[in-house]
């Protein structure tokens, strides 16, 4: 277990540089209003945890930040670039923003090493030897360098998720988004993934994490956001958020989950 988890709260690494700026953003699926007037500013090095009941729009929000979904109203500005229909911008944003999914989304036809080097070689145009070296470095960091030649299907869920984190890190992103990274895992595997994420937080990475792991949220978060039915209902620092939730809906949610 890392120091951070035993000592409690991790020191904030936030600076004043704005990485993500969501401004009065609205999104509809057909006629269903998923996200309502979302305002959110994430600074460089800041770590946000988003929680809320299912269907509250939390996943949709971070998918919008990575332009996997489009929004209809308002602005999303990531790393100084405004998201829109411009395809060139999209590709640029996606190389700067790493994303880890609930279902890993590794490429089953490629080995772990190929999964990791694909982006650097084809998108970043990095020489192959250099890409492999970097990939092995990140595999060390997620503690599975010996699995480099295996296929994703031969690994446990926890290992796959750590590979997915390493795959995103290989692109050297400025922001990491996590969409319920531990929800599809067995209990004993959740910890190994969270440990890797805590270590990542210690390096000062800007992170937005959708999760129900409240212990993890307490440890790393600079701010916790509670969403319900497309609204940001409450936001606070983790101590205040967990000890004295203000809104009635937050209280109800926390009492069910803790």
């Amino acid at each position: 277990m890392s120091d951070a988890q035993t000592n409690g709260q991790l020191a904030s690494a936030a600076s004043s540089e704005v990485m993500i700026d969501v401004n009065k953003m609205n999104k509809w699926y057909g006629s269903f209003h998923v996200l309502k007037d979302i305002d959110l500013v994430v600074h460089k090095g800041e770590r946000f945890v988003i929680c809320g009941p299912s269907g509250s729009g939390k996943s949709t929000l971070i998918r919008c930040i990575n332009a996997l979904e489009d929004h209809q109203e308002g602005d999303i500005i990531v790393d100084g670039i405004k998201l829109g229909k411009n395809l060139k911008n999209l590709d640029h944003i996606r190389t700067e923003v790493g994303m880890v999914f609930q279902n890993f989304n590794l490429f089953p036809h490629l080995t772990i090493l190929e999964n990791l080097t694909l982006g650097p070689i084809w998108v970043r145009k990095m020489p192959k030897a250099e890409a492999i070296e970097a990939a092995m470095m990140y595999l060390e960091r997620v503690k599975i360098p010996e699995q480099a030649d295996k296929y994703p299907g031969q690994m446990s869920g926890g290992q796959q998720q750590r590979v997915a984190i390493a795959r995103s890190l290989c692109m050297n992103p400025k922001i990491m988004l996590f969409d319920e990274p531990t929800s599809a895992l067995d209990p004993e595997m959740i910890k190994e993934v969270l440990d890797v994420m805590v270590e990542l937080a210690e390096t000062g990475m800007t992170m937005v994490v959708v999760t129900h792991e409240m212990g993890f949220a307490k440890t790393i978060a600079d701010e916790v956001i509670f969403m319900d039915e497309g609204d940001i209902v409450e936001r606070n620092n983790p101590t205040a958020f967990f000890d004295h939730p203000e809104h009635e809906r937050t209280q109800k949610f926390l009492s069910q989950i803790l």
Binding site: L68, R94, T95, V123, M171
Partner: peptide, 12 residues
């Protein structure tokens, strides 16, 4: 998910 995984590493 495979399309999304590919998009997130910047593949067009």
């Amino acid at each position: 998910g495979q399309f999304e995984g590919a998009h997130t590493i910047g593949l067009g």
